[in-house]
């Protein structure tokens, strides 16, 4: 037992850099999910029939993008976008390269979550703002986003957790991070302890993300 632990401590540096790589991939993809996914979701909702800027055509396109993006299995997406990744990053291997498919998976996911969060807002609340003369722009930034903020934060939490597991998958094809370590040391060299340790770290990371996500969402939630 003691020897196993001492043995593991030899890999502390390895684990730490794996952890940082995972956080880097997840963090960057989350950033793109916010920048890309939230506007995508907002545009999808408000162009729905009976919403504030109904537009059948735009809604059809955006809704389609979200559905297609969400239905491609991540492992396939990862391979399919290799040319694009090369174009953007210059290589298709490494943590930075992995951010491309991770972001492309996270954006439609976050889009749907935002769409659902905004749809939850009572139509009457939106109408009351319209009755005061709010413009569509004001409606989005003063009503739709603030009112759905707790749900959007919970959605980001969910996205972050999905990204942790996707990033492990990306690791398997040379993306780096904890997943990469689990495969290379745990699976290929059959160092079970290392595999277990990466799993423990991943579990703790997921727990922490969920914990802080709930906390932050709670800070903004004044509904009860």
């Amino acid at each position: 037992m003691f020897e196993t632990i001492m043995g593991l401590s030899r890999y502390n540096n390895l684990m730490w850099s794996g952890f940082l790589e995972t956080m880097y991939m997840v963090g960057m993809a989350l950033l793109f999910a916010i920048i890309g996914g939230i506007p995508l979701g907002v545009m999808t909702t408000i162009t729905r029939p009976n919403h504030i800027l109904p537009n059948k055509f735009i809604n059809f396109i955006l809704d389609g993008i979200i559905n297609i993006g969400r239905s491609i299995p991540f492992i396939i997406l990862m391979v399919a976008v290799i040319p694009l990744t090369r174009l953007i990053v210059g290589t298709s291997i490494g943590t930075t390269a992995a951010i491309v498919p991770l972001s492309l998976a996270a954006i439609p996911f976050m889009g749907r979550i935002t769409d659902n969060a905004i749809l939850e807002i009572d139509q009457g609340v939106i109408e009351s703002a319209q009755s005061m003369g709010a413009s569509p722009f004001q409606l989005v930034f003063k009503v739709l986003l603030p009112e759905s903020l707790p749900a959007i934060i919970l959605g980001l939490t969910l996205t972050a957790i999905s990204l942790v597991s996707y990033s492990a998958m990306a690791g398997a094809v040379g993306g780096g991070g904890l997943g990469d370590i689990a495969i290379r040391y745990g699976y290929q060299r059959f160092q079970l302890a290392i595999m277990l340790e990466t799993i423990v770290i991943l579990v703790v990371v997921v727990q922490l993300i969920q914990y802080f996500g709930n906390k932050i969402a709670g800070l903004f939630d004044h509904r009860s």
Binding site: D122, G124, V125, E127, S128, A129, Q130, S131, M132, G133, A134, S135, V143, P146, E147, L149, F220, H222, R223
Partner: peptide
Amino acid sequence: RAARQKIGMIFQHFNLLSS
């Protein structure tokens, strides 16, 4: 929109902003 600013409205379910 400008005209609406001069017409107040109240509702059965209040429709206040929860945030």
